[in-house]
Design a protein around this nucleic acid. Structure first.
Lengths: 337, 337
DNA sequence: ATATCTTGAATTAACGTTTGTACAAATTTA
DNA sequence: TAAATTTGTACAAACGTTAATTCAAGATAT
């Protein structure tokens, strides 16, 4: 491995100083009135020697890391993987590097991750938090680090977020079921303490109450395939079987469908299903599942925009709590009864 | 934002030198015979002041970044997202940080990414390459940087890789179709130049030849949903419609199923389908699709193990070309005729 | 011809950490 | 008791870059 080329090498070869080389290479030539000829020769020699800047040295000196962090609960979940992919594309466009961290839905890991990232001088944090603890995030925020929560957020915290209007989404889904004649609906929820879950439950109950339906069943406690599976298995054994299931995430739905399949219950003939989160594969399922499609792309882009304006001190917002309305994507999993 | 705590602050507070503090904090206390008392007080003060090491300074001095890079073609593809999630978990366990990059199947982006990562002093590269060019990767390798290709690799290159035995997988799939009486099989391929694709095609042809079937149809040219969709739309209009489709990736299958649905062709009654790549949702499709399940987890773990042994100069292998056999996961998409 | 301004660049000192080396003090050995 | 060894720690330099400051030479104005 040949020794790495540094700015000094270029300086020596061109007969110019390291300062001049640095300024040209970081695009500050005009600002510091470097001559055209010097600029050209520096660029040429840099290319010729295949110069690659040492990020660490540059950052140490300048304090700028040009790095934004994305922390997600699980890349294995297509919903988050999609967000990661999207954000990565956008962030690169802006000349930043995105460091993606996967916490595996573990708050401990999230905290460690954040430490790691601070020591990497990350300039901004995009966080999809896991769990219910947010002290460590608030601490981060209070230290003045630009930060935005996506998708998940905390009600009793002032941390800025961009998220789906989960309340509206749940009302929409529930009303859709009600309009189709369903009165006995089982709602399989995710993590009880998470705000999106709470808002969804709130919307579900609100919609039920509006029509005077007090037959409210909220079950489950995790945004996982297993939870969806287990709860579905159980609810099929209720004395009075619900006519519809409202699953609060794509993962829950997957477990739910697995259970229904095992029990040979047909959707929508034997039971209707509606779900939060959209995904292309929902179109190709045995029965395509009607869903509340979150405006993921907008959530990402708005979140990023917010973060960048904070980064550049550009923006003073009245509020930094943004919710976007999801769409009802009608497929074929709800029967009229 | 309170000023960041540095080693110097701890040194001053404890009355010890920065050297001593550094040595304790990097776990080299024994090696340099730092006294128990000093160790203890340094640890305490570090915690008290909430010291977070400056990664950039440390790396600049030591040359160690403790970072491994993963470059994937697209996190939007669940196959790769899954790999990212898996590797992330494993890498953390080993005390390294994983930087995940998404190239969007663009070689240009891949090259830029690599530059970026070099300037971040990444210690090892795990690459799932996109496209057919590999000069930039070979250059990297020849510079002595530990590197391993996963899943995709290049036949006419000596770059180390861990991948599925695609040839075997394709033979298995094809034989399975043949055993079920199929003689007219359309194989929808991905990127022609990619080695996995080539090996799969080779296996497909080999299996057909073994039974003297010369009715070989290989169509398509991309590992994309669109390609699967378009080619399926077309093949349904052939004079003599094939009785089975062998799709060479999960994305191709998704497009294929979309086309079949639109045309109201039933699987497996009207046409049989088998696919490369497994995914949980395959179980829940209208017809669960029989697949060649790649041993993704093993590929990842072996790849990582290889990389680390290279990193630590531990291992001299005779060959660094590893292929693992995939499994046939029988579901319900192939009809006996 | 002198003063003033503009242009183009170099000097020098940081950034926060790690590392090679040096060196007292305490302890053991002869 | 003097020499040798061990123990515990400090000093100073270095990593590659950038930023503040300074300065020489040429151009322009008076």
């Amino acid at each position: 491995m040949s020794a790495k080329i540094k700015i000094k090498d270029i300086a020596e070869k061109t007969g110019l100083s390291t300062t001049t080389v640095s300024r040209v290479l970081t695009g500050k030539a005009k600002q510091y009135r470097i001559g055209k000829k010097s600029q050209k020769i520096i660029q040429e020699v840099a290319k010729e020697l295949n110069y690659i800047p040492n990020h660490f040295a540059a950052n140490l000196r300048s304090g700028k890391s040009n790095t934004i962090s994305l922390i997600v609960p699980s890349l294995g979940n297509p919903f988050f993987a999609n967000i990661a992919s999207l954000l990565n594309r956008e962030v690169r466009k802006l000349g930043y590097t995105l460091i993606i961290s996967d916490t595996n839905e573990d708050t401990k890991a999230e905290m460690l991750e954040i430490q790691q990232l601070i020591s990497r001088n990350v300039e901004g944090f995009i966080i999809i938090p896991c769990g219910e603890n947010f002290e460590h995030i608030e601490k981060l925020y209070s230290q003045g680090l630009p930060l935005i929560l996506l998708d998940r957020y905390f009600e009793n915290s002032n941390l800025p977020f961009v998220s789906t209007d989960n309340y509206y989404g749940a009302i929409t889904a529930t009303k859709y079921l009600i309009e189709h004649g369903h009165t006995s609906i089982a709602c399989i929820q995710g993590v009880k303490s998470s705000t999106p879950n709470k808002m969804r439950i709130k919307g579900f109950k609100q919609a039920m109450q509006e029509v005077g339906n007090t037959n409210i069943h909220v079950i489950g406690d995790d945004f996982s395939v297993q939870n969806g599976y287990q709860e579905t298995k159980l609810l099929l054994r209720w004395k009075e079987r619900p006519t519809a299931i409202f699953a609060l995430s794509n993962t829950i739905t997957m477990g739910c469908l697995k259970a229904l399949k095992e029990e040979n219950i047909k959707v929508p003939d034997d039971i209707s299903v509606i779900t939060f989160d959209d995904h292309p594969y929902l179109d190709f399922l045995e029965t395509p599942i009607t869903s509340i499609a979150q405006p993921v792309e907008h959530v990402c882009k708005i979140g990023l925009k917010y973060l960048l304006s904070k980064l550049n001190n550009e923006l003073e917002l009245i509020t930094d709590h943004v919710t976007l309305r999801p769409d009802l994507k009608i497929r074929n999993s709800v029967k009229k009864i």
